[in-house]
């Protein structure tokens, strides 16, 4: 087996020997990512209505189902309707602190049980929640960013925000507000640079998932088919501020 030293030495030798094809440099990164991220947010505070409209269009183009409600108190109603339509009596959700609301008080009296993601990562709790996610027909998450250009939901995993919530159930519902809207991939780049520049936040979250519509394949005779491994249906609920 090659050691790191030998392996890299060989590469270094070849790199020194190579003339290079043309003068080139990587993409210019923001000098101060945290400030650049703040500037992008300020920009979006003005431009969010256009971004939201673009997000809706692109999200629907990739077969997402878009909802808009006036305030947080209306979210449970939309989810209840989705659950009724699916005949779902069980759902999994991110921890209330991560989702921004607790669905249990409004949905459990209506006969929908909710498995809320644990935040401490104890083994038995993890296992139980994993089983619930594998069983539940609906998973409810937040979104860290909603990218208008492509209709993409971006979710950072972490305590109380399992990856499986947006992956195992047949229907994924993401709840977000205008603070989350971004217009371009370039802005996403700025946000991710800022995330990694922040020593503490850079260690949080094992996975960042970009989700652009429901799972799809065209592997059999190029026929577009949804829900091959991930969700068949993706809903985005935009929460306004009354």
């Amino acid at each position: 087996m090659a050691t790191r030293g030998e392996f890299l030495e060989k590469i270094r030798r070849e790199v020194r020997r190579a003339p290079g094809l043309f003068a080139a440099s990587p993409a210019a990164r923001p000098d101060r990512p945290t400030e650049a991220a703040a500037a992008a947010r300020r920009q979006m505070a003005e431009r969010w209505p256009e971004a939201l409209e673009r997000f809706r269009q692109e999200f629907e183009r990739v077969n997402g189902i878009f909802h808009r409600v006036a305030g947080l108190d209306e979210v449970a109603g939309v989810i209840r309707d989705i659950a009724r339509e699916k005949g779902a009596r069980e759902l999994v959700a991110w921890a209330p602190g991560e989702l921004g609301l607790d669905l249990r008080p409004s949905l459990e009296p209506q006969g929908v049980s909710i498995a809320v993601a644990p935040t401490d990562g104890r083994d038995d709790a993890r296992r139980r929640h994993r089983e619930a996610a594998a069983r539940a027909p609906i998973g409810v998450t937040g979104a860290d960013f909603a990218l208008a250009e492509t209709g993409t939901l971006i979710l950072i995993s972490g305590a109380g925000r399992p990856r499986s919530t947006s992956l195992l159930p047949e229907t994924h519902v993401a709840v977000f507000d205008r603070e989350r809207l971004l217009e371009t991939l370039e802005q996403v780049g700025v946000m991710l640079e800022a995330l990694h520049a922040d020593a503490e936040r850079s260690m949080s979250g094992g996975v960042i998932s970009f989700i652009t519509g429901p799972s799809r394949t065209a592997d059999i005779e190029l026929t577009l088919t949804r829900g091959v491994h991930g969700p068949k249906e993706v809903h985005a609920i935009f929460v306004g501020t009354r």
Binding site: V62, G121, A133, T152, G158, G160, R163, S164, I208, P214
Partner: peptide
């Protein structure tokens, strides 16, 4: 590749499961 603006899933993997995480 497929004419999509983005593929459905772009997954940025940052090492093993972190403390407190359910999956990974």
């Amino acid at each position: 590749a497929t004419g999509q603006k983005l593929s459905v899933y772009t997954t940025l993997v940052r090492g093993p499961r972190r403390s407190g995480e359910v999956d990974g």
